[in-house]
């Protein structure tokens, strides 16, 4: 009898392990969209408050992993005129902002990564961690299938695997046919607080990349739409010198 129970338990463990393996594989395949390096991008960000669009923010973005693989990003606003030249520099957990209106540079606390980036529904972490995959900070489990916009998707639940994880929990939907992230829901204190829809994938550097990303808050009447106008993988426009706080002083 003991042998049967042991065998059954082992069988269950193997099944659970296989499911976890499946979930990790799905996530790994989906993460390829965010594993582009030395990326130059031009994009717009429109925030809708109470359904009313705010002035669109035009941004230029540079991302480049450092030698240890840590993500680094520099975002420079070009529009609206009020913030043209304002820049955010993120080096791992460190975040700097340079205000074009005053020319001053501030280093923000590491807890600020969770804060709203430029008044949008994206956090600095959402914006800057584009180069990081979810697999690093979260452990995934496969919890069935659902359709998102008519596309059959895997439904994966991500729980924090280490202290770098910003969110308490995430639910992600990855398309079964192409392994693309279609929706990500972010949880805090037991409830979803915002969700992201990724759509209009196109090919960059041999991997699919979403042209349009919409983050909708569930606790504020707010929605932020980021659209990529131009993206270059392994771009010559991305230089190592951009990723220092002293470079911020030179931005005009």
């Amino acid at each position: 009898m003991k042998k049967i129970i042991t065998a059954a338990l082992l069988g269950l463990l193997m099944l659970a392990s296989a499911a976890a393996q499946d979930a990790k594989e799905i996530l790994d395949r989906a993460d390829r969209s965010f594993e582009l390096d030395r990326v130059y991008s031009e994009s717009s960000l429109t925030v809708y408050k109470n359904g009313k669009p705010q002035a669109p923010q035009m941004m230029i973005g540079y991302t480049l992993d450092d030698s240890s693989g840590q993500a680094r990003s520099l975002t420079i606003f070009r529009e609206p005129a009020r913030v043209a030249g304002t820049a955010y520099l993120m080096l791992g957990d460190d975040l700097w902002v340079r205000f074009a209106s005053t020319g001053r540079i501030r280093k923000l606390s590491s807890s600020a990564r969770k804060n709203s980036a430029a008044g949008s529904d994206f956090s600095y972490a959402d914006m800057g961690e584009g180069g990081d995959s979810f697999t690093g900070d979260y452990s995934a489990s496969l919890e069935g299938s659902e359709r998102i916009n008519g596309i059959e998707c895997y439904r994966l639940v991500l729980e924090p695997a280490n202290r770098n994880a910003v969110y308490e929990k995430m639910v992600v939907w990855v398309s079964k046919d192409e392994f693309l992230y279609l929706k990500i829901e972010y949880y805090d204190k037991g409830a979803p607080v915002k969700y992201m829809i990724l759509e209009d994938y196109f090919e960059v550097g041999g991997v699919p990349y979403p042209e349009k990303i919409t983050m909708t808050s569930l606790v504020k009447k707010s929605e932020s739409v980021m659209e990529t106008q131009l993206i270059e993988h392994d771009s010559d426009r991305v230089e190592e010198r951009f990723f220092t706080s002293s470079y911020l002083e030179t931005i005009r």
Partner: peptide
């Protein structure tokens, strides 16, 4: 300068 920067954030944040 502090108030101008706060103004930048208020404009961006729709406040």
């Amino acid at each position: 300068a502090n108030l101008i920067e706060m103004g930048d954030l208020a404009v961006l944040g729709g406040s």
